[in-house]
Amino acid sequence: MPKPSLRDAILDAGLKEMFRTGYHGTSVRDVTTAAGAPQGSFTNHFRSKELFASEVLDRYFTYVRGLVAEALGDISLPPRERLRRYLDLITGKLAHDGFTRGCLIGDFSLEASGTSEMLREQLDEIFREWRAPFAACIAEAQAKREIASDFDPDELADFLLASWQGAMLRMKVERSAAALERFKTIAFQTVFKELP
């Protein structure tokens, strides 16, 4: 009888370890130890740490897509409120982790995009896909005259995601929600200000 695959356990462990110690700080040994797997099982499933990290990133983005759908897909709320709901949902998850973890996509963007062209290209594709539902929600808010139409929805979506990533970096340094709340307050009183 064949042994059960440890692939999912290794990917789960990799996600936790890379959140904890980063792309460069995580070794194959760290991952297999955390997964309770022999080191050889890593190489049975993954040809390199870079390819493994790519799958970890895909797994994480699948989770993020679910959060985006949960917040932005709730059409019982006006579009402007859906944007705020996403940020509040993420703030709650970050608080649950004691403000020690941010976003793996942002972390990889800082750490891995300069050393891995493959991961940089993957991150670029992720940001493009991630932007689309935010741009659609912003366009809907503009069409309903909830917010100003001074800027293109794609540009506003990029601004929102990039600025939010910056707020999360500051949050990790401060170990508090202050940077996140400051961003939400300023963004929703300026760029995403409700029209009278």
Results as ranks from 00 to 15, higher is better:
P2R: 15
D158G: 07
H45Y: 15
H96L: 12
F42R: 12
W164P: 06
G73C: 07
F19D: 00
A177D: 11
I186K: 03
I10F: 09
P38H: 14
D8R: 14
G98I: 07
G106N: 06
A132E: 15
R175Y: 01
K144N: 14
D158N: 08
H24R: 09
E117L: 04
L160I: 06
L51S: 15
M1S: 15
G14W: 03
L180D: 04
E55K: 12
A135L: 09
I138Q: 04
T185R: 10
L87Y: 06
R20M: 06
P133T: 06
R128P: 00
K144V: 05
R7H: 13
M168L: 11
Q122D: 03
I10D: 06
L15K: 10
L72W: 03
L104E: 00
M168I: 05
A35D: 09
A177M: 00
G40K: 10
K144C: 10
A167H: 03
E129S: 11
E111Q: 05
V64D: 01
P78G: 06
D107L: 09
F52Q: 10
L6K: 15
R84G: 12
R20E: 11
A162H: 05
L123C: 03
L119W: 04
R182W: 00
E81P: 04
K16D: 13
L119G: 02
R120Y: 00
A135P: 02
E194H: 06
L83P: 07
R120W: 02
S76H: 10
M171T: 12
T190Y: 08
S27K: 04
R65I: 08
M168T: 09
A148H: 12
S41H: 12
V28C: 00
C137P: 08
L15I: 05
W130P: 01
R120I: 01
R80K: 08
D8Q: 15
A178N: 03
T62W: 02
S76Q: 10
G98V: 07
L110G: 00
S113D: 01
K144P: 01
A9Q: 15
F99T: 02
G25N: 02
M18V: 05
F108V: 00
G66V: 04
M1H: 15
R82Q: 05
Y86S: 08
T115D: 00
R131V: 02
A178G: 00
P78T: 10
E155A: 14
K193F: 07
G40P: 10
S5E: 13
Q39R: 14
C103Q: 00
E117D: 05
A35P: 11
A187P: 03
L57V: 05
H24Q: 05
